[in-house]
Write a protein that binds this DNA or RNA. Sequence first.
DNA 1: GCATGATCATGC
DNA 2: GCATGATCATGC
Length: 492
Amino acid sequence: MEMTPWYDKTDPSSIESYGRQMIGKTFRSIYEGAMASGRIHTIKEDKATYMARHADKNYKGGVGNLVEECWFGYRANSDAQADFPEAGVELKVTPYVETKKGFRAKERLVLTMINYMEIVKERDFEHSHLWEKAQLMLLVWYLHEKGMSDMDSTVDFVQLFTPPEEDLEIIHSDYQKIVAKIKAGKAHELSEGDTLYLGACTKSSSSKVRRQQPFSDEPAKPRAFSFKNSYMTYVLNHYILPGKQTYDPIIKHGKVDDFEDFVESRINAYQGMSERTLRQRFNLSQPSKSIYAQIVFRILGVKGNHCEEFEKAGIVVKTIRIQKNGKMKESMSFPSFRFQELADETWDDSTFGNYLRDTRFFFVVFRETPDGEYYLSGCKFWNMPYQDVEYGVRKVWQQTHDIIKEGRLVLTPDNRGRISNNLPNASDSPIAHVRPHGRNREDTYPLPDGTHLTVRDTGTGRGTWPNTTVFTKQCFWLNNSYILCQLKDIIL
DNA sequence: GCATGATCATGC
DNA sequence: GCATGATCATGC
């Protein structure tokens, strides 16, 4: 068997070029190669045990440990120290997935645990433990395919990565926001949506575990610094994969003190202008449904309805119209869910729960005046407060989940051709509800295997609706009254 | 006037 | 063609 040349562990580019020789190999073959070479002495287990352990979804080390042991030949450890201390390089083996729209990172990239008691003593970002870990990483990407063991995935890309200067500004201020929250005794209220590229993600073996924090008696969930999924998706598409289209950045050159402050003040410079005036100002032709979003992006000086920073941060722009009567006309909808997927999830790793935990929103508010025109009135970055997600939305989610999973869905046809259901309504919760969201009633998803709809016999319903195993697409909505309440501080 | 079921419209 | 954001419509 051919011996792969060893590498210089003090030299980043040597580590990278040695790492590149993994490209095209499966993790299984990396293991087999290591065993055949007789070079690796740290693995005492037999093949079957080792394989089973590393292929286990619950074994967090997974293929990362395998690469460390079998390719680079050092024993995997969870030391706080860098993986290649002499070179200052951290090894990260990370999956990506294929979607209908291209490729995205499968996960956030976990960098290092946050030690609440110690981090508040750190001098500054440049001297932080985090920066030590994140300033130079060897990213090893593999495609995760559904239903396939990662052992059979091949290494596709290997590349040294340092966050570019313009990202560093934002990462730096994310770090400060997280530390400030801990210093304010609010470690238990940390949320991934608080920040832009760098997040404080939960990290523990069970959702019950709690850690001590320095300035409050309230125990907090253990968390780690991570690059958000949206950021890693951008890194993958922008720096790793060739030929991906890019979006305009808002900050084109120079530095700004704080990204969000900058964006808010840009928008606020147009406060008080009507939709019509803004449309003329930016040469936008006929008003359409997306006119308000178009205005926002034109003000921010970017083409299209996307921008680089929002993509990286996973920021979702929501334009909000408040009517003369002071109410929001509509609640806020989200993508419809697949019933089977919802039934298979638990709250802690639910699609909707994670979306709310991870997403930062940028609300831009237009208000209707007595003349019937809408005027730009203000804006704010927002993410849902911890309690509202974990108690308020959770209740609605759980109720919906249980009804679908247990096959307790009941439809009641009325005498005007409409069919009501027993999923949580807006009047059942101050925060969220469930409503249809498809092309029309016939736009459906299948119900979980073995369940079907119960149609209540109301006299009009009998025999009208066949026993069916599909149901009109539904989604979670945030109540308009709730959103309005969250906007209180910017609505004069 | 609101709640809720139903549907439209745009962009990818 | 569909996902997603946005909006309509009507009975209570």
